[in-house]
């Protein structure tokens, strides 16, 4: 078991390295750098000014050197710029340059400086992730139980009227993207178009004080989309289990129908959807991008949009590392949980 987890962690590190390198490479393409220089400095900078701006801040060093700096395996740059000022990657504003450490990267715990928010990447990532965590928690709390209930009700009597209506419902919800359902929900429940001003169309207030009124719509928008998908998976798995021979055995043992479903079918039917539910985490990460922007909820997805829009290299990298971490940790949990659900599989 320990070996298995160790191996998974090694895979996680390797994936992070690859992914961040790709992001690093793309954000460091010259047109992106130019755009960043102009947003940071002055939109009317000429090409030479852009060049010296980038040069002074170490952006024009070779790509592996820059990546090494970010990782913390290569000493940070110290450049005496064309304007006479000495800049260094590891310099802090109130520090004397000679006291600055030689290395500053991920390995030293320094995640970089966000050019968009003018602040430490680590601080931004943690606060935004915290806000998104609250959103995700409520989404899961609403989505998973209702999806499983719908799936099991639909799957326990395949082809029945309940099955058909619930299946139609799940197909409709999962076929409607969030930017459609979000807009519809806002129009119906938060605007004066229908006169039902039950909820608020913006979730900005929910960052400090989440309550039903300001938080319900973003949660429902994400949950309803994922719900249909999980419900379909659960239904398929449940329907298959209900035709299994051991269900017939149970029926002919005299077990009543509710007990067949709860005691005999449920655990077997949950094995497949469990993996799907865990796969929803990475999906949620990008699903929140749309919803957080739509409801102006300044979470992780919103930060990602801001970072990408402004070519904020180090913030983007920080966001990528955290995403990889979240995805792989949930997959690890999913694999371990799978072992507990399915006694036929053993990790040892």
């Amino acid at each position: 078991m320990a070996l298995f987890i160790l191996r998974r962690i090694a895979i996680m590190l390797f994936t992070s390295l690859c992914l961040t390198f790709v992001v690093f490479f793309l954000t460091n393409l010259y047109p992106n750098l130019e755009k960043m220089a102009k947003t940071q400095g002055n939109f009317r900078m000429n090409d030479e000014a852009v060049l010296s701006f980038l040069e002074n801040r170490g952006y024009l060093l070779p790509l592996p050197v820059k990546y090494g700096e970010w990782l913390g395996v290569y000493p940070g740059y110290v450049i005496e710029g064309s304007d006479g000022e000495i800049r260094g990657r590891c310099f802090k504003s109130d520090q004397i340059p000679s006291e600055a450490p030689r290395y500053c990267g991920i390995l030293q715990g320094y995640w970089g400086y966000s050019t968009r928010f003018k602040s430490d990447v680590w601080g931004i990532v943690t606060t935004r992730l915290g806000l998104t965590g609250i959103l995700m928690f409520w989404v899961m709390a609403l989505m998973v139980p209702s999806a499983l209930i719908i799936g099991i009700l639909a799957g326990m009597r395949e082809g029945s009227r309940t099955d058909r209506s619930l299946s139609t419902f799940s197909i409709v919800t999962t076929a409607t993207p969030e930017y459609v359902s979000g807009v519809i929900l806002i129009a119906v429940f938060a605007s004066s178009a229908f006169g039902l001003k039950w909820f608020k169309g913006t979730a900005t207030a929910a960052m400090d004080n989440p309550n039903l009124e300001n938080f319900f719509l973003p949660v429902v928008t994400i949950a309803i989309y994922g719900m249909g998908y999980i419900a379909r998976m659960t239904r398929a798995s449940m329907a298959e289990v209900m035709t299994a021979q051991y269900i017939r055995t149970a029926r002919l043992k005299g077990v009543s129908f509710p007990n067949i479903v709860l005691k005999h079918a449920l655990r077997n039917a949950l094995i497949a959807p469990f993996t799907v539910i865990m796969l929803q985490f990475p999906w949620l990460l990008n699903g929140v991008v749309i919803v957080e922007t739509l409801f102006n909820y300044k979470g992780f997805g919103w930060a990602l949009v801001q970072a990408a829009g402004n070519n904020d290299i180090e913030l983007l990298l920080g966001v990528s590392v955290v995403s990889v971490f979240v995805v792989l940790v949930t997959q690890l949990i999913s694999d371990i949980g799978y072992v507990y659900l399915n006694p036929r599989i053993s990790v040892t």
Partner: peptide, 16 residues
């Protein structure tokens, strides 16, 4: 009335 089936593996609940 009790019944015994052809495939014992399939007629026992694998997760119980």
């Amino acid at each position: 009335i009790a019944m015994i089936y052809q495939e014992p593996m399939a007629s026992l609940n694998p997760a119980m």
